[in-house]
Simulated scan of single mutants.
Amino acid sequence: MEYVQERIATLHDLGDTAGDTVVPGGLERDPVAETAVVVPMTGRELESPAAERVLSELEDVEPAAVFVPVRASPDRIEPFREWLESFALPIRLLWCNAPAVETLLADAGLAGRAGKGHDVWLALGPAAEAANYVVVHDADARSYEADHVRRLLAPLTMEFAFSKGYYARVEQGQLYGRLFRLFYAPLLRALSESHDAPVLGYFDAFRYALAGEFAMRADLARRLRPPREWGLEVGTLGDAFDYAGFAGTAQVDLGSHEHDHRAVAGETGLEGMSREVAAELLRVLEEHGVDPEYDRLPTRYRAAGRELIEQYRADAAFNGLAYDPAGERDQLERYADSIASPGPDRRLPRWTDAPITPQAVVEAARPRLERPVDSAGGD
């Protein structure tokens, strides 16, 4: 049984010793009633089996609030509202691309590209106002369990300020978690060969740094500066490093996850995501004293990646899993093109410094139905 600690506190699921009670074993109180959960979605999550499971499981948790920032076309937002209201949850739907939201942000000088990071940011301000703790997780985990929220919250009751989930990504008889295994991990390994900044040790301590499941005190939620699209997870780690550091950070074993899978190639696939992740990771590292040698870094990354591929090959064979080293090397080459100096900093501001209020977001993001006027002049 594995119980190895990292530079950050690592809370394992040690089987029967952890207990299967409502509150994880050893904790004196359940913080869920003081918690707002943020579950970002896009139009494709409407009535999807994974999102349906997530919301159904949350019904057993009974948090103080569930914020669902949704990016969807106008014709889908009303079906989204009706579907969300079918769950016995205190759901607060935020229509992230509503015309009123776009106007609010433009007037505040915050217009720009928008995606997952933008949508989560819109929810973080209201969530931090509504509760003492904020949990963020995706809606695409087909293996989601209500217990995950309490596990993420557990470190916050033990005086940690930030908690991140980790889990195995073994599905359909093969290894997944490709962007983490084949891009994030070898890139950090390559950078660590010539740099010893503490932030590198912090980033390397997370067993699944790109996991979308994390929890934090409301005060930290107000201080996150998310990138507008992808890269939210590594950007959050940078802010957590500044706020909580090694001593105030924990990671929690969430078992095994089964997620929806993305294609590798193209801007909407892992290849496109790697560019956003690289830009955010390298920006954070530069801010904390790392000076990457960009002319040599891709070569070092490829070498580190090839070493890891041989390790993954051995691990897969040991466990009787299918493994395609040629395909993994192809991904390595695709991701290598993402390694470059980050462009302009387009992160959104901390809510502590934002030129708009959480209440203004809630009002602007509320779906408004267009109802026909009664021809007889009635109300």
Score class of each variant (00 low, 15 high):
170 V>P: 02
170 V>T: 15
171 E>S: 13
171 E>N: 13
173 G>R: 00
173 G>Q: 01
174 Q>T: 15
174 Q>H: 12
176 Y>I: 08
177 G>M: 05
178 R>H: 13
179 L>M: 10
179 L>K: 02
179 L>I: 15
179 L>V: 09
179 L>P: 03
179 L>D: 07
180 F>R: 10
180 F>G: 13
180 F>W: 12
180 F>V: 11
181 R>T: 11
182 L>G: 08
183 F>M: 14
184 Y>Q: 12
186 P>Q: 05
186 P>I: 05
186 P>F: 04
188 L>Y: 03
188 L>H: 06
188 L>T: 06
189 R>V: 08
190 A>E: 08
190 A>I: 05
190 A>V: 06
191 L>T: 10
191 L>F: 07
192 S>T: 13
192 S>R: 15
193 E>G: 13
194 S>M: 11
194 S>A: 13
194 S>R: 14
196 D>W: 11
196 D>T: 14
197 A>G: 12
197 A>Q: 15
198 P>L: 11
198 P>T: 11
199 V>Y: 10
200 L>Y: 09
200 L>R: 05
200 L>N: 09
200 L>Q: 09
200 L>I: 10
201 G>W: 09
202 Y>I: 08
203 F>Y: 14
204 D>W: 05
204 D>P: 03
205 A>K: 01
205 A>W: 01
206 F>Q: 07
206 F>M: 08
207 R>F: 05
208 Y>V: 09
209 A>Y: 00
209 A>K: 00
209 A>T: 01
210 L>M: 04
210 L>K: 00
210 L>P: 01
211 A>P: 04
211 A>C: 15
211 A>N: 12
212 G>A: 03
212 G>S: 05
212 G>H: 00
213 E>S: 15
213 E>P: 07
214 F>V: 07
215 A>W: 04
215 A>E: 06
216 M>W: 07
217 R>W: 09
217 R>V: 13
217 R>P: 02
218 A>H: 04
219 D>W: 05
220 L>Q: 06
220 L>V: 06
220 L>R: 04
221 A>C: 09
221 A>F: 04
222 R>T: 12
222 R>Y: 09
223 R>W: 06
223 R>H: 11
224 L>V: 12
225 R>T: 15
225 R>M: 14
225 R>W: 13
226 P>K: 02
227 P>M: 10
227 P>Y: 12
228 R>G: 09
229 E>Y: 09
230 W>V: 15
231 G>Q: 01
231 G>M: 03
232 L>A: 06
232 L>C: 04
233 E>K: 01
233 E>L: 00
234 V>R: 02
234 V>S: 03
235 G>S: 03
235 G>L: 01
236 T>Q: 03
236 T>P: 01
236 T>D: 02
236 T>I: 04
236 T>E: 05
237 L>E: 04
237 L>G: 02
239 D>F: 03
241 F>P: 01
241 F>K: 00
